[in-house]
């Protein structure tokens, strides 16, 4: 009997959710589910660089915002189909990733971290001063009332984000299992040793930054249509930065499923908290969970699960 390839599982889950989205009538679930899926993309994308190679990117908001404002620019120019905006956002974000990575990754890793931290703030400044996209006033995107083949536009956006989440997870998984993933893991363990084993460290790091940033940009492109009113503060919100770090750390960084677990868990908690308590408390919850996990369970939920399994195996074998 041949083993079922494991990439089939994310695909099946995505198909199941797609089927569900056809049945569920309440639009709130689409609305909330979109956010969860968006965080699956951001967390998986972050993990490709951060989790696999150990380089911290604080600037997820920058890449996400590039995607969002990229879509705004296109929307103002000729209102292309959403897919075009997604591809455009992905390309621009990954080019910004290329430049940032090339300038800072030759140096110590923390310079990259600091540069990404500043990147979100500076891009926000640029957009604030760019009247074409509305400057500080923001931009209203008019979304069609309906779209062929979908019950509603929100449902359409949900399905698009579902597709992006599936792509992000499959890309992350493919990288993890390929020789690129092995090379990134070697970099994470010891970069000098990796280089001396023939690993082209700079090229791999730049590649990972581009893929990671590109996916984040793609996740940002549908955002203007999702919230309909986009301003610099919501596009470059630091919440994206902390969430996309916290989710992989809490879920577990060494396996592609880790960011997915973390994203679902944290995003659901935050969706519930936003409705029931306050949105400020959201960030507090994420911050406290982040600190607790990195000190108490450094390998995240996946790590806890593996430890439990090893313990059980040992008990069974004795």
């Amino acid at each position: 009997m041949r083993r079922i390839p494991s990439w089939i599982w994310p695909v099946l889950v995505a198909l199941f959710i797609l089927a569900l989205s056809r049945v569920v009538k309440n639009e709130y679930y689409m609305f909330a589910g979109y956010v969860v899926l968006q965080y699956i993309v951001l967390a998986s994308a972050w993990n490709i660089l951060g989790g696999y190679s150990g380089y911290v990117n604080f600037g997820s908001a920058a890449f996400f915002g590039i995607g969002a404002y990229g879509a705004v620019v296109l929307d103002k120019l000729w209102q292309p189909p959403l897919v075009v905006a997604i591809v455009f956002g992905g390309i621009v974000a990954s080019l910004v990733g290329l430049v940032t990575a090339y300038l800072t990754l030759r140096l110590r890793g923390v310079f990259f971290a600091i540069a990404t931290l500043a990147l979100a703030i500076v891009l926000q400044t640029l957009v604030m001063n760019w009247d074409f996209v509305g400057g500080p006033l923001g931009y209203y995107s008019v979304r069609p009332d309906s779209i062929a083949g979908f019950p509603s536009y929100v449902n359409y956006l949900f399905v698009i984000m579902l597709g992006l989440a599936l792509i992000a997870v499959l890309v992350a998984r493919a990288i993890e299992l390929s020789f690129i993933g092995r090379g990134l893991a070697a970099i994470r363990d010891n970069e000098l040793a990796a280089e001396c084993c023939g690993v082209p460290t700079l090229r791999l790091k730049v590649f990972a930054t581009m893929v990671s940033g590109g996916l984040m940009g793609m996740a940002g492109a549908p955002f203007p249509y999702y919230i309909t009113y986009l301003d610099p503060n919501s596009a470059f919100s630091l919440a994206y930065g902390i969430n996309s770090i916290a989710m992989p750390l809490i879920g577990g960084m060494t396996h592609w499923i880790g960011p997915v677990i973390g994203a679902v868990l944290l995003a659901v908690i935050q969706q519930v908290a936003t409705v029931t308590i306050s949105s400020e408390l959201n960030l507090m919850i994420v911050g406290v969970l982040l600190i607790s996990f990195i000190t108490l369970a450094p390998n995240g939920i996946v790590g806890l699960f593996e430890r439990y399994r090893q313990k059980r195996q040992r008990r069974l074998s004795t």
């Binding site: 020789f179 070697a186 994470r188």
Partner: peptide
């Protein structure tokens, strides 16, 4: 400077591949 997250044989696959 071993690659500590890998097994002994895993350490060797890096230079073998790269």
């Amino acid at each position: 400077l071993p690659f500590t997250s890998m097994t002994v044989i895993g350490n060797l696959t890096i230079p073998l591949r790269f």
